[in-house]
Amino acid sequence: MGSLGTIIGTWLAGFLTLAILSFLYKDNPFYKLAEHIYVGVSAGYWLIYVAFFDVKPMLWDTFVTETGAEKWIILIPGALGIIMLSRWFPKSAWLSRWPIAFTVGVGAGLGITANIQGYVMPQVAATILPVTGMNLVSLNNLVLMVGVVTTMLYFYFSKPQRGVLSWTAKIGIVFIMVSFGASFGYTLMARISLLIGRLYFILADLLHVIG
């Protein structure tokens, strides 16, 4: 797109940005319009994205380029995908349970292996750290270990939280609140950074008020 395209694009982006920001005044037709455009355009974008990066290379290109058994094996997920569309026809809608069952099965299988390999084991390994003497590193490592264990114990509801469990849960809530506060502050700063970006766009690119 040439310079005219850039000008039109900048005005379009400017209109949509101001329309969304107009919600700060109150809910209004401009905001509603931009909101609906956002939903429609995003749905279209993801449809094209999935078609181009998933279905085309994995299904179509494999079918066209492969030879032998592979060429026909790849039709199995293609058939499952088409069966998924049987939801459009009430009489055969029950057939869509097959591809749904397949996706649930993959999700559940990965839910076991990926969670253990990707989350539990690495997180536990990264938590069990050396505490060697009275120094700052050891103290920090101790804080990390105590924090992880007490946070988990705070969410342990299989036994009434009395006695030792009550104390560990109380320490756990301290870590949880500090963590929530920090995450909250971090998220707020990220959003403000985005807001600065949009305001800069309006003042610099759209209105040329600042350089």
């Binding site: 999700g107 559940a108 990965l110 076991i112 969670n115 989350y119 536990v124 938590t127 969410f155």
Partner: peptide
């Protein structure tokens, strides 16, 4: 961010991952 925040986040993540494993087993 590096210690108390990470500790609580890690504790929650481990708990959630263990919950996901048990849910996956129930589904299978």
């Amino acid at each position: 961010m590096n210690y108390p925040q990470l500790a609580a986040k890690r504790g929650i993540q481990i708990g959630a991952a263990l919950g996901a494993v048990s849910m996956s087993l129930r589904i299978l």
